[in-house]
Amino acid sequence: MLGLLGMSATIWVRRPTAAPAGEVSAPTHRLDRPLPGLTIGIREDRAWRSWQHIGDVWAAWLDRDGASPRTVETGGQVGVPGSDDRRRIDELAAAVDAAIVGLGTCGSCTTFTVKDAVAVEAAGKPVVAVVCDEFLVHAQNVARHLGHGDLKILALPYPLEARPAADLDDIAAEYYPRVLALLGVTGSPGTAS
């Protein structure tokens, strides 16, 4: 198609981009109960020793505060390890009252942290996805594109790896009340130390 006199000629082309999915967000859930008597799942990741440390600290504190922690460790994305992990996440979602799912501190592990958290949320349970702040926007994007844009996400400092255990303990203490608040725990738990 030619433009007006004195203007450049134009043509029509087709836009190659697709609209993102997931503009509608699935419902989220809150405990709205105190911790004692609840079963809280923790999803750890075999890749991240720092998160195993923090997860283990939180599990001990959940136990101290009257809840029953239940930890699963994942490490697969495909194949038999991947399908085994997804099955165990589904079992965790069915067995617990709420779950803490981490850790997103790389691209694909953030994706799978969010996917596993979404599986818990889709099962109707309160859940918090735990990521490092470098990966927060990525986690939010993944959650939105999976149709769970309101998924609760807790951002820990980055990087966690290569920090001494004492630093990780401090981070565990600082963020323990925050993760409980995001789950909707009532009362006054979370005096961490």
Binding site: A9, T10, W12, V13, R14, R15, P16
Partner: peptide, 30 residues
């Protein structure tokens, strides 16, 4: 459908602005 300049250089600039390419020139998807 999107109206774009037919001139190669202008079209290339438009594809960069629209973020349709990987940075290298592309052909018009007429």
């Amino acid at each position: 459908a999107v109206e774009v300049a037919a001139a190669p250089q202008e079209f290339y600039e438009r594809t960069l602005a629209e973020r349709w390419s990987d940075g290298a020139p592309v052909l018009p998807a007429t």
